[in-house]
Measured scan of single mutants.
Amino acid sequence: EFTQISGYVNAFGSQRGSVLTVKVENDEGWTLVEEDFDRADYGSDPEFVAEVSSYLKRNGGIKDLTKVL
């Protein structure tokens, strides 16, 4: 089950073990991109978060400006 990723309007994530599946949706709710990120592939949590965040930004993730990150 996908849940909204904090700080984004149209990005959602689903966690299974160490694998986080993220997706970005358009205004109609269609999935634009979907990608798996395995936490085990990264040396640290900040590196993992930075990679996921960068992916979302590159692929149309819209920041939720009503929330302070």
Rank of each mutant, 00 (worst) to 15 (best):
E1A: 11
E1K: 13
F2I: 05
F2W: 15
F2Y: 09
F2P: 06
F2G: 05
F2Q: 05
T3K: 14
T3Y: 13
T3L: 11
Q4E: 07
Q4K: 14
Q4L: 15
I5K: 05
I5C: 12
I5T: 03
S6R: 12
S6Q: 12
S6G: 08
S6V: 11
G7E: 05
G7C: 15
G7K: 04
Y8S: 05
Y8N: 06
Y8I: 05
Y8R: 06
Y8Q: 05
Y8L: 04
Y8F: 10
V9E: 04
V9F: 07
V9I: 12
V9D: 03
V9H: 08
V9S: 08
N10L: 04
N10F: 06
N10P: 00
A11H: 00
F12C: 09
F12A: 01
F12H: 03
F12I: 03
F12L: 03
G13Q: 13
G13V: 12
G13M: 15
G13N: 03
G13F: 14
Q15W: 15
Q15A: 08
Q15I: 13
Q15E: 06
R16I: 06
R16L: 06
R16E: 02
R16Q: 07
G17H: 03
G17N: 04
G17I: 04
G17K: 03
G17L: 04
G17W: 04
G17M: 04
S18F: 06
S18P: 03
S18M: 06
S18W: 07
S18T: 12
S18Q: 06
V19A: 01
V19L: 05
V19P: 00
L20R: 00
L20A: 00
L20S: 00
T21S: 07
T21N: 02
T21I: 07
T21K: 09
V22P: 00
V22D: 00
V22C: 04
V22T: 00
V22I: 10
V22E: 00
V22N: 01
K23W: 12
K23D: 00
K23A: 03
K23M: 06
K23C: 09
K23G: 01
V24P: 00
V24N: 01
V24C: 05
V24Q: 00
E25A: 12
E25G: 05
E25S: 12
E25K: 15
N26P: 01
N26A: 06
N26K: 04
N26R: 06
N26D: 10
D27F: 10
D27Y: 10
E28S: 10
E28H: 10
E28N: 10
G29L: 04
G29D: 03
G29V: 04
W30S: 10
W30F: 13
W30G: 11
W30N: 11
T31K: 06
T31C: 10
T31I: 12
T31V: 12
L32P: 03
V33I: 09
V33S: 12
V33W: 14
E34A: 10
E35R: 15
E35K: 15
E35P: 01
E35Q: 15
D36V: 14
D36P: 05
D36L: 09
D36R: 13
D36I: 11
D36E: 12
D36Y: 10
F37T: 00
F37M: 01
F37Y: 01
F37V: 00
F37R: 01
D38L: 02
D38F: 03
D38S: 03
D38C: 06
D38R: 03
R39M: 06
R39I: 04
R39D: 02
R39E: 03
R39N: 02
R39T: 03
A40G: 07
A40L: 11
D41C: 13
D41H: 12
D41F: 08
D41T: 08
D41W: 08
Y42I: 00
Y42K: 00
G43S: 11
G43P: 09
S44F: 02
S44Q: 01
D45E: 10
P46F: 15
P46C: 15
P46D: 15
E47K: 03
E47R: 03
E47Q: 07
E47F: 03
F48A: 01
F48H: 00
F48E: 00
V49A: 11
V49D: 11
V49R: 13
A50I: 06
A50S: 09
E51S: 12
E51K: 09
E51F: 11
E51V: 15
E51C: 13
E51R: 10
E51H: 12
V52Y: 05
V52S: 00
V52L: 09
S53T: 14
S53Q: 14
S53W: 11
S54Y: 10
S54W: 10
S54H: 09
S54P: 00
S54A: 14
S54R: 13
Y55T: 01
Y55P: 01
L56C: 06
L56P: 03
L56G: 00
L56A: 01
L56R: 01
L56W: 00
K57C: 15
K57H: 11
K57W: 08
R58N: 10
R58A: 11
R58S: 08
R58D: 08
R58P: 02
R58E: 08
N59R: 04
N59H: 12
N59F: 11
N59Q: 05
G60D: 02
G60F: 09
G60I: 02
G61P: 04
G61R: 03
I62A: 04
I62M: 07
I62P: 00
K63S: 09
K63M: 14
K63G: 07
K63N: 07
D64V: 11
D64W: 09
D64E: 10
L65P: 13
L65R: 08
L65M: 11
L65C: 15
L65T: 13
L65S: 10
L65W: 12
T66Y: 11
T66K: 10
K67P: 14
K67W: 13
K67S: 12
K67I: 14
K67G: 14
V68I: 11
V68P: 13
V68G: 12
L69W: 07
L69T: 13
L69D: 14
L69A: 14
L69Q: 13
